[in-house]
């Protein structure tokens, strides 16, 4: 069917372009309006890069630029920290699930590990808020809403996704290569470092990429767990548009988009290189 001809092929081509259109036209529209000279609204008044320049203006003089810089740093710190922690923990969890558990335990683990990935964000956020409330009564200061609580929250939901990806790769690799390594006198550590880890690497990087993107995108969980000094980009965009959509929000969004696209392309190249 994939090599079909005539009307079928025309139909699939149209559907493909339509799909791409749905995905990319809104993004292109945002990118285009970020170059509008008007401060707000959707009427095209001329081409300008002033909003980009203002974003990068001297933070000493421009309040907006100062806010944006702080918000960007928060977003990257949160994304970076939660990605590193969740990638390590998620990979370990995937490896741990491979332990020769009795089949009943194994089935239970498999069914519960995916729940955080599919649970509604709002439920997850509510649970986290409650958990931090309880923890605050036990240990003061540590669990005040802020960067710490946000990192913990993001790690909590990112682990599930990292585990999902690493585990599926582990299943695809199968047990035979591990057995071959053991058969060739490899100690458990050598076997992990020389066989398991290199083969898992693309999945680990893929999991990390997904975790970082999820953290960058997250609004609901950040909204419930953030403090006054830990506003991230999605939260900032939300707060700003309450006061009306200004064109510089389009500029921020475009930069965010370019950043994510670039990191994905770099990481993809990196994994391909590692694989070969």
């Amino acid at each position: 069917m994939s090599s079909g001809r005539g009307p079928w092929r025309a139909l699939t081509t149209v559907a493909a372009f339509f799909g791409f259109g749905l995905l990319y036209v809104p993004l292109l529209a945002v990118a285009m309006y970020s170059f509008n000279t008007a401060e707000r609204g959707l009427i095209w008044t001329g081409f300008s890069v002033r909003w980009y320049i203002e974003l990068l203006a001297d933070p000493e003089t421009s309040r907006r630029a100062r806010e944006i810089r702080e918000v960007a740093v928060n977003t990257l710190v949160l994304g970076g920290a939660s990605t590193v922690i969740s990638t390590v923990l998620g990979t370990l969890l995937a490896l741990g699930m491979r332990f020769p558990w009795p089949s009943s335990v194994s089935r239970l683990l498999e069914s519960i590990v995916d729940i955080p990935a599919v649970a509604p964000d709002i439920t997850f956020a509510a649970v986290l808020v409650m958990a931090f409330n309880v923890l605050r009564r036990v240990v003061d200061h540590w669990f005040e809403p802020g960067m710490t609580t946000m990192i913990i929250s993001h790690v909590t939901f990112e682990i599930a996704f990292v585990t999902l990806i690493v585990r599926s790769r582990l299943v695809a690799i199968g047990p035979t290569l591990s057995e071959a390594a053991m058969d060739l006198y490899a100690s458990p550590w050598r076997h992990f470092r020389r066989v398991t880890l290199p083969l898992l690497w693309p999945a680990i990087v893929g999991g990390a990429m997904l975790a970082f993107t999820l953290s960058l995108n997250d609004f609901v969980i950040s909204f419930f767990t953030s403090g006054p000094r830990s506003v991230t980009l999605p939260l900032y965009v939300y707060q700003s548009q309450m006061r009306g959509v200004r064109t510089d929000l389009f500029a921020i969004s475009t930069l965010l988009l370019i950043g994510v696209a670039a990191s994905i392309m770099i990481l993809e190249r990196l994994t391909r290189w590692r694989h070969n």
Binding site: T176, L177, E179, A180, M182, D183, S187, V195, L199
Partner: peptide, 20 residues
């Protein structure tokens, strides 16, 4: 003795060569 300490080697059915 675990597999890695036995003086035997195996040729596996699907060869199990390390792809990397």
């Amino acid at each position: 003795l675990p597999a890695n300490r036995r003086p035997v080697n195996t040729v596996f059915q699907n060869y199990a060569l390390f792809p990397h």
